[in-house]
């Protein structure tokens, strides 16, 4: 597969503080690559180095197969789109004019209508950005990033501070971009976002890469066990519960009004519980499955929670 970004041993120091401590990243064409970490982990620093907004202290960066030395060259800028963490637009310009302006910076560009259509802002073409809602403004920022029909799009926490509805609309947009074959480099500290959108994820903490893999593999490898919560009517006597424990070769935790079983094999365990209930004439009520998430992955990998 073609590598769009290749980073080796990237480091960034601010005085004595090393924000990025030797990171390796590979981003492949057409994938949504997630860069996941808590605040202050070095996500934005790394991203801004790639965008050309910060100078690395050491390390090599290749983009589209070309090594970046010093400033990002215009030929590469032509092929990338950037959504900054906070975008302010030039004051006193309408949506349409902002897009026209940015379109003029690039050799090739898509039409304003198309860009607005993609982000569903067509009706706001003559509005001023200050009159848009937070979500609309972020979609405009994405439209600006898409105006040059980039092959690679950098998005720095694109949904931070947005309401659930706006967040959903941005997620749909990212999925649409992905299906159009764009490569997307996304930083986030939202688990659901990473899990839903990303093909591969790099987890970064304290400026170091902790692990890189697809969300499914990460969960499988580091997510730990699933949990099944259930309750029964009538409440079975203790010896029956012990029988089930023997069957499952595990302990059943008695919580307030229900029981919890921790297991590696969800299906098999469930089958055994159903058989047991039929055999003992108890009906199962309120059955819940709790599967491991990236949050658990992060916790297991770093020993702390993502939003510490």
């Amino acid at each position: 597969m073609e590598k769009v970004i290749e980073v080796r041993d990237l480091r960034k120091k601010y005085g004595n503080f090393e924000a990025v401590k030797g990171i390796d990243i590979d981003v492949f064409k057409g994938e949504v690559f997630g860069f996941l970490g808590p605040n202050g982990a070095g996500k934005t620093t790394t991203l801004e180095i790639l965008e050309g907004l910060r100078k690395p202290t050491s390390g090599t960066i290749k983009m589209f197969g070309e090594e970046i030395k010093g400033d990002v060259i215009p030929e590469i800028k032509e092929r990338i789109g950037v959504v900054l963490q906070q975008t302010s637009f030039l004051d006193h310009l309408k949506v349409k004019e902002i897009l026209e302006l940015f379109a003029s910076f690039f050799k090739k560009s898509i039409s304003i209508e198309k860009a607005l259509e993609m982000v569903e802002l067509k009706e706001k073409v003559n509005a001023y950005p200050e009159n848009l809602s937070g979500g609309q403004r972020q979609r405009l920022a994405i439209a600006v990033a898409l105006i040059n029909d980039p092959d690679l799009i950098f998005m720095d926490e694109p949904t931070t501070g947005l309401d659930p509805q706006s967040r959903e609309s941005i997620w749909v947009l990212v999925e649409k971009l992905k299906s159009n074959g764009k490569t997307i480099f996304l930083t986030t500290h939202y688990m659901e976002e990473a899990q839903r959108l990303c093909d591969r994820i790099t987890i970064i903490d304290h400026g170091k890469v902790v692990e890189t893999d697809s969300p499914e593999h990460l969960i499988l490898k580091y997510g730990g066990e699933s949990k099944i919560d259930f309750s029964c009517t009538p409440t079975p006597p203790t010896e029956k519960v012990e029988e089930l424990e023997r069957e499952l070769q595990g302990k059943i935790h008695k919580l307030d009004d229900h029981c919890r079983i921790v297991t590696k094999d969800l299906t098999q365990t469930l089958e055994k519980i159903v058989l047991w209930s039929k055999k003992n004439n108890v009906s199962l009520t309120d059955v819940f499955f709790i599967e491991p998430t990236l949050e658990d992955v992060f916790l297991n990998l770093t020993g702390r929670e993502l939003r510490d």
């Binding site: 907004l53 800028k77 032509e78 900054l84 906070q86 975008t87 030039l90």
Partner: peptide
Amino acid sequence: NYRSNNTLKRLKVTP
């Protein structure tokens, strides 16, 4: 003003 509201930063990543 353009610097403080990150407009310059946004322009910097374009050609």
